[in-house]
Each structure stands twice: as structure tokens, then as C-alpha cells.
């Protein structure tokens, strides 16, 4: 067991190192430098002495390898550097944005699981009936219409119909103003959850349908077990592994996939921070945020495997 964990950790570290190298190389391959990104064509108005001064400030004159190892060393020691655009520490920028995205991701998953699991089970128990048709409808909307279209429609309807757009107010922390915080996070989470819920619903429906034909379900019914007990104790539990796996993957993608919804709903999360930083060539922020996404993705994969092993004894044995 210890060997398995060690192997997993080593492969995780190699993955993360690979991610850092790829991010670093891609950012340096982009045309333009931090001065031109920051000032645009106004960079042409700078005198030679001013350009030299800024080159030194942005570390433009240093070699790529020197920049990489300097950043990696600092990151490993907990120093993520300073934003080139706002001159604020990267850790404080991430510290402000990460809780927003994390909360959005968690709320989205709660709603997506509600939509996906309930509609999935309802559809599998009565294929082709009303519940199934409703579920298929949600799946069609969720998978067929991009979330930014649904998001824009929701914002427009709520603001013009109800005069309501809570996320356009200053961001309220979960603990400082929980009621406003819930309102700010609910609708973007609902919009995101439709697509993710659709994917979970399809997985749930297929898995439950698959399990429902197994002999042990017939035996359970034959023994006179109540319908609810058969559904939740036998059908659902045995169909849970693919649902957990799908949810884990979706949550991983979700962390990096909130960009457009954060823009539409004015949420100051990591996605928005990443977009702003990419456009301004703010290398320290882009590198750190992307690395954070990668770390989250790897941790979620580990957690998903662990939960699957907890649920399914066969996976523990393997």
C-alpha cells in the first residue's frame, strides 16, 4: 500500500513539474513582452533609458532558464512573486480569488449532483416516461446550449424582470454576509450545473439501468424489500462508482472552466484573474494560477480514486 501511495505521489510531482515547464515555455513563446503588454503602443513613447529601466524591473534581460529556476525556487519556498500589472503580491491576488471559485465549484457540484442523480435515477426507473423525458430535456439543454448563452439569458431576465443582479454588488464573503453571498453564487452555480448535471445524469441513468438488470436486484425485490430500499441501498450504491468518477472529472474541469461565467456574473474568481493576467502578460500570476489549477486537478483525481476505493471493495483489493 505504501509503495502504491509513493508511486502515485512521485507521478503527481512529475506531472506538476511538467505543467510548470509547459506553462513557462508557452508564455515565453507568445509575441510581445511585459512592457508592450502593459503599455501597448505607448511603449514607443519611452526613451531608451526608460526602456532599460523597465527591462530591469520586469527581468526581461535575464535568460529564460534563469527566470524559470528563479520562479520555481521562489514558488517552492512559498513566495509566488508580485503581479507585474498591479504590483500586488500574487499570493494575495490568489487568496482573494480562490475562495470565490472554490465556492462556485462546490455549489455547482451540489446542484449538478441534485439535478444529475435525481433525474438520472428517475429516468432509469421509468425509461421513456415523463421523468425520463424531463431528464433528457435537461440534458439536451445542458449539453446543447453553451453556458454563456444560458448565463446571459439568466442575467438579462433577472435584471430586467426582477431588478435583481446580486453578483454585480461588491463581493460578499461567505462568513461576512452569508445571505448576500448565497444570492451571488446561486445563479452562476445553477447555470454551470446544468451542463455538468446533464453529464452526471446520463452517467447515472446508464449505470442505474445497467445495475437494475442484475440478478441481485431481482433477488432483493423477490425477498420483498421496499422500493426505496432497493433503489438507494442496492441500485444506487452499486451504480455509484461511475457517478463519482464522472463527478470528479467534472469538478476538475469546473475549476478551470468558470472563466466565462465569472465574467458574465461579475464574480472576482480565479478564471477572471487568469484571463486578465494572460492579456497583460502578467507571467507570475498566470504561472501561479495555472499551477494551482493543476494541483487541484491532481488532488481531485487522487480523492476520486480514494472515494471509489472506499465505495467499491474490489478496487481496494486491486
Amino acid at each position: 500500500m505504501l509503495l502504491v501511495i509513493s508511486k502515485r505521489l512521485i507521478s503527481t510531482l512529475i506531472t506538476l513539474l511538467g505543467v510548470t515547464v509547459v506553462i513557462f515555455v508557452i508564455l515565453r513563446l507568445l509575441p510581445g513582452n511585459a512592457i508592450e503588454s502593459s503599455m501597448g503602443v505607448n511603449a514607443g513613447l519611452l526613451s531608451h533609458a526608460q526602456i532599460l529601466q523597465l527591462d530591469h524591473y520586469y527581468g526581461i534581460g535575464e535568460s529564460a532558464s534563469s527566470q524559470f529556476f528563479s520562479w520555481l525556487g521562489a514558488t517552492l519556498s512559498g513566495n509566488l512573486g508580485v503581479s507585474l500589472a498591479s504590483r500586488v503580491s500574487v499570493s494575495s491576488l490568489i487568496g482573494q480569488a480562490f475562495p470565490v471559485t472554490l465556492e462556485l465549484a462546490i455549489m455547482t457540484m451540489i446542484l449538478a449532483l441534485l439535478i444529475g442523480v435525481l433525474f438520472g435515477i428517475a429516468g432509469a426507473l421509468r425509461p421513456g416516461k415523463l421523468g425520463d423525458a424531463a431528464g433528457q430535456g435537461v440534458a439536451l439543454v445542458g449539453l446543447g446550449i453553451p453556458s454563456f448563452v444560458i448565463g446571459t439569458a439568466v442575467v438579462t431576465i433577472l435584471s430586467s424582470g426582477f431588478g435583481y443582479f446580486p453578483s454585480s454588488q461588491t463581493w460578499a464573503g461567505l462568513f461576512s454576509n452569508p445571505w448576500l453571498n448565497l444570492q451571488q453564487i446561486f445563479f452562476p452555480a445553477l447555470v454551470l450545473s446544468i451542463g455538468i448535471g446533464a453529464a452526471i445524469m446520463r452517467t447515472t441513468r446508464t449505470a442505474v439501468l445497467d445495475v437494475s438488470t442484475q440478478n441481485f436486484i431481482r433477488t432483493a425485490r423477490g425477498k420483498g424489500l421496499r422500493g426505496q430500499a432497493v433503489i438507494w441501498r442496492h441500485l444506487f450504491l452499486n451504480a455509484l462508482v461511475p457517478i463519482v468518477t464522472m463527478s470528479g472529472i467534472q469538478l476538475g474541469y469546473l475549476l478551470g472552466g468558470t472563466v466565462i461565467i465569472e465574467q458574465i456574473f461579475v464574480l472576482p474568481g480565479l478564471g477572471r484573474l487568469l484571463v486578465t493576467s494572460i492579456t497583460s502578460h502578467d507571467y507570475p500570476v498566470v504561472q501561479s494560477v495555472t499551477l494551482l489549477f493543476a494541483v487541484c486537478f491532481v488532488i481531485l483525481n487522487l480523492l476520486t480514486d480514494a472515494i471509489c476505493a472506499l465505495i467499491d471493495p474490489r478496487q481496494r483489493e486491486n
Partner: peptide, 21 residues
């Protein structure tokens, strides 16, 4: 009894969606 359970699952699913909105 099993059929009732399925109907309840449908109702719960619909109720959850309506509740969210």
C-alpha cells in the same frame, strides 16, 4: 410498492429542480 417508489423519485427530482429556481 416499487412503482410508488419510482413515482416518488420522479416527484423528488422535479421538486428539487423547482426548489432550486
Amino acid at each position: 410498492r416499487f412503482a410508488h417508489a419510482k413515482s416518488r423519485a420522479c416527484i423528488v427530482a422535479s421538486a428539487a429542480a423547482v426548489l432550486s429556481v
